[in-house]
């Protein structure tokens, strides 16, 4: 798949001296959903804002579909739709008027049929004549998405699209994002919610202190960095872990009824067989066993902690 966006050595230092981006390199393929994870102040919004033309870069370059974002700004910006983090909408306009305005602003001739389709796809059609100030937060978020899609962009940036949105609406929004991907739109979203990245992203990037510290296919990331835990339910409580089991780094539950063994799925030897035979030799028996995979959240927390 060809790279639709190529970010090379991108840096941004604000007038205050704060270095928000430190030589970011990132390629984004056509048609993918990329989730950018990162704590507050990591540089996610600065990165998006720079690609969209809102923030001037201090160094490096960005191309969109082969066009430079500064030299060919008309071409690149017409390919991009942006849904900002804040609910920044007009208050007194109707939904129809504000979405129609956005289409014109991005250089497209009026197309009421297309606007109607966008509003219907986003369940906004029955609100088309409502003033935006009368809408709920979730509906306003949809209006922002409709505005971003009004000029038929091939790239959509979603800056924390489900921040402050209830669970049901968040899942609705994920369905919208997946449906957009099906139509060929490339989607880049920033999020604090690990489950969001886990649920909809094809690739996950982690940005921290203005640097991309990891960029990986989600499934590969999960298997590469994922740790598994094996939990053994003991038949009778033990007071302490016998010294012969020290090398396994087991955790004993407070009630002495559960042993937890953490192992690396990618390791040559997981140590499970040896552990089970050592447990047998130590006279510790169990009546149940289950394993759990570490979540993207665990991976993210570990990465950011290590980077710090």
């Amino acid at each position: 798949m060809k790279n639709l966006i190529e970010i090379t050595n991108l840096s941004k230092t604000y007038a205050s001296g704060f270095q928000a981006l430190k030589g970011v390199n990132l390629n984004i393929s056509q048609g993918e959903i990329l989730a950018l994870l990162g704590p507050n102040g990591a540089g996610k919004t600065t990165l998006i804002s720079t690609v969209c033309g809102i923030v001037n870069p201090s160094g490096g370059s960005v191309t969109v579909d082969g066009f430079d974002i500064i030299r060919d700004y008309r071409k690149t910006r017409s390919l991009i739709g942006l849904v900002p983090q804040e609910l920044t909408t007009d208050a007194f306009e109707t939904v129809w008027a504000t979405v129609t305005f956005s289409r014109g602003l991005f250089g497209k001739s009026a197309n009421p049929a297309y606007i109607e389709k966008v509003l219907k796809d986003l369940s906004l059609w029955d609100k088309k004549d409502s003033m935006i100030m009368a809408l709920s937060g979730g509906m306003k978020r949809r209006v922002l998405i409709a505005k971003a899609l009004s000029h038929e962009p091939s790239i959509l940036f979603l800056d924390e699209p489900t921040a402050g949105v209830d669970v049901e609406l968040r899942k609705d929004m994920w369905n919208v994002v997946r449906a957009l991907q099906d139509t060929g739109v490339t989607i880049i979203l920033t999020t604090h919610y690990i489950e969001e990245a886990e649920a909809i992203a094809d690739r996950v990037g982690v940005i921290h202190n203005g640097e991309i510290i990891l960029i990986e296919n989600k499934s590969e990331l999960m298997s590469k960095l994922g740790k598994k835990r094996m939990i053994l339910d003991l038949t009778k409580a033990v007071n302490s872990i016998p010294p012969t089991l020290d090398k396994f780094g087991l955790d004993l539950s407070d009630d002495g009824m559960q042993l937890t063994y953490t192992y690396d799925t990618q390791a040559e030897r997981t140590g499970i067989t040896t552990l089970l035979s050592t447990l047998h030799s130590a006279g510790i028996s169990f009546n149940d066993l289950n394993t759990t995979q570490s979540s993207l959240e665990d991976i993210f927390v570990n990465l950011v902690r290590d980077a710090s």
Binding site: T88, A91, G107, K147
Partner: peptide, 14 residues
């Protein structure tokens, strides 16, 4: 003031 200026700044407009 409202923040909607983001749209103007990200639009293909001189």
């Amino acid at each position: 003031f409202t923040g909607t200026v983001y749209e103007l700044m990200s639009a293909p407009i001189s």
